[in-house]
Design a protein around this nucleic acid. Structure first.
Lengths: 328, 328
DNA sequence: GTCAGATGTGTGAACGTGCACACACTAGGA
DNA sequence: TCCTAGTGTGTGCACGTTCACACATCTGAC
């Protein structure tokens, strides 16, 4: 900066003003801009961050096992959406996958160190220690999904899992199925719990507790395992609501192995409308989740807090329409 | 830092020395460490980076469409492996997905701005403009994969795609297949081209040019499309080498639709040994690619250059053994 | 008793920026 | 002529570190 001030025949202060706004004469501005182009000057981030007391980075914290991070196209979509919004605002996204205890310690240190100006938190559960750290630091942040029972001052963006689960279940019932089960994944998270509640409410008197197979993760292997459990408990099962598309894909595989035809013998519906949905045969009927938008809006919420805006609403629920294909 | 120097009754210089090494008496060290704990001091990265003239960040540059980044578990595995090594060395990994022209411009600016001290470059092709930028900047970096015709001074880490493709093709031939085709993906990249060459060499006189279906991407949809093309051209096809596991999964789906049994009618082999391999029925025979290790070693190469070490070897090829399951 | 070397410690400058303040010039009104 | 408000510019300090250098103390050998 000193160099280009000299080249343009002005002082550092004037250069700083053309960069950040303020009174500058047209001639001085022109000379400085020319010098910047000629020298190929780029401002030094470290120096700027130092004096501005910020890092110009936002943490993207995923509270999931590494394996799921790889397997779930939904998380990837949210990440890409958030990244696009953030980089347009000249913020850098920093990925933080929290799996083990060691990760927790490292990330806590990272968060405390002022390495990020804000955070987007995916897949939070009430008891996660990271949540306490973020809350305690009063770091501008946003949840993806909405854990109801903690930190009401942190806004969320997500979809209405409960209502969408109700809707698709009703739609499944409308195809004439009567023995309908659910492979419920991740019920320790709000999304998983809501999908289960929606299913139960939509079924009403048709609901049967023995037709719920609980599995830990939203993945293919859990889906296959859950389906086998269900078939064992009730060979006459004719409908299945899988808690995610990956789970549904696993379920379809298990059904095929058991010699059942989808959708003739058993109707299957999923959730997410991820790339899994068009990968299975038949293609999945599912609930569309606008992953890209969710990521973008979460990023936007953090950016607005950073700009000092007051976030009035507690959270945003994006529309999640049903996409009906051939699996039910 | 000034605060804890005061608390411990020493000067800033001494505190810096306990942090970074140097002559410090045992009593001073003890007092300072106690003060650090009590105050909860964390060094300021911006200030440190400013004086050290570095950013303590490494770019992880993926030259692929966003969609593939989501779908390919291999890239995810490499990323996680690199991230683990980098964060152990207190470097932050910064994800940069280059898809559009706009991305290229933004990332070029980013690289020039000194935001990263090094780069790991995945899926490079000769003509990528990003490669020119990295080469011109003499940024410590490493390729994942080995584009032969450019920047010999940048080391690479990968596997021997050619030899592994030869081996698994020979193994497929040994099961008695005679009309063997290949779904060749991404032949504009070194990995894709090498797998095709290996296939051709292993087949020798059995090789038939009409049994090659070229598809653009290593993904499920391309696999299904390629298999349909192959079946159309040669209904009596009895063996298929798919360029990746995702491609193989798509191929198996297309074969099932066409009423062919795997492996009875058609033997299928893949490449990667990603989570796709145990997701198909039957499970895939494939080439194991140590994604985690590849990422870790690439990160290590960059780290070593940063430490000023001379990288003697031009590149590293990791072992990629065949994993034989049920699909052929 | 002096000197050299090893072992510690304090101080000032520098890294590259933003910001507050002081200052200079101009135009217009009293 | 003087004052004021608006417009433009230069200067010094601060941000929180690292590093080189100067300095202090101690030990042992001559």
């Amino acid at each position: 900066m000193h160099d280009i001030a000299a080249a343009a025949g002005v002082s550092r202060g004037t250069v700083s003003r053309v960069l950040n706004g303020g009174y500058v004469s047209a001639t001085a501005r022109a000379a400085i801009e020319r010098a910047i182009r000629e020298v190929g000057y780029v401002p030094n981030t470290a120096a700027r961050n130092l004096v501005m007391q910020r890092s110009q980075a936002i943490g993207f914290i995923v509270l999931e096992p590494h394996s799921l991070f790889l397997e779930d196209p939904n998380i990837g979509g949210i990440m890409l959406g958030a990244n696009a919004t953030l980089s347009a605002a000249d913020y850098q996204m920093v990925n933080l996958v929290v799996d083990s205890e060691r990760d927790t310690a490292r990330i806590t240190r990272y968060l405390n160190g002022g390495f990020v100006d804000g955070a987007i938190i995916v897949s939070a559960r009430s008891h996660d220690p990271i949540i306490q750290v973020v809350g305690g630091l009063a770091l501008p942040s946003a949840f993806v999904g909405h854990p109801r029972d903690l930190h009401p001052e942190i806004p969320y963006v997500g979809i209405d899992n409960l209502t969408s689960a109700e809707e698709i279940t009703r739609r499944l019932v409308a195809t004439g199925r009567r023995r309908i089960g659910m492979i419920a994944a991740a019920v320790d998270r709000d999304s998983g719990a809501d999908r289960l509640t929606g299913f139960r409410q939509a079924l009403g008197p048709l609901f049967d507790d023995t037709l719920i197979a609980e599995v830990p993760l939203y993945d293919f292997a859990c889906g296959a395992k859950g389906m086998r459990t269900l078939l064992e408990r009730e060979p006459n099962i004719d409908g299945v609501f899988a808690a995610s598309d990956a789970v549904a894909a696993g379920a379809i595989e298990a059904l095929r192995e058991a010699g059942r035809n989808v959708p003739a013998d058993v109707g299957v519906v999923g959730f997410d409308d991820s790339s899994w949905a068009t990968r299975t045969r038949p293609n999945l009927s599912t609930v569309h989740q606008p992953a890209d938008d969710i990521g973008a809006q979460a990023a936007d919420m953090v950016l607005r807090q950073l700009r000092g805006e007051q976030i009035s609403q507690r959270g945003v629920l994006l529309p999640s329409p049903i996409v009906w294909r051939a699996s039910a």
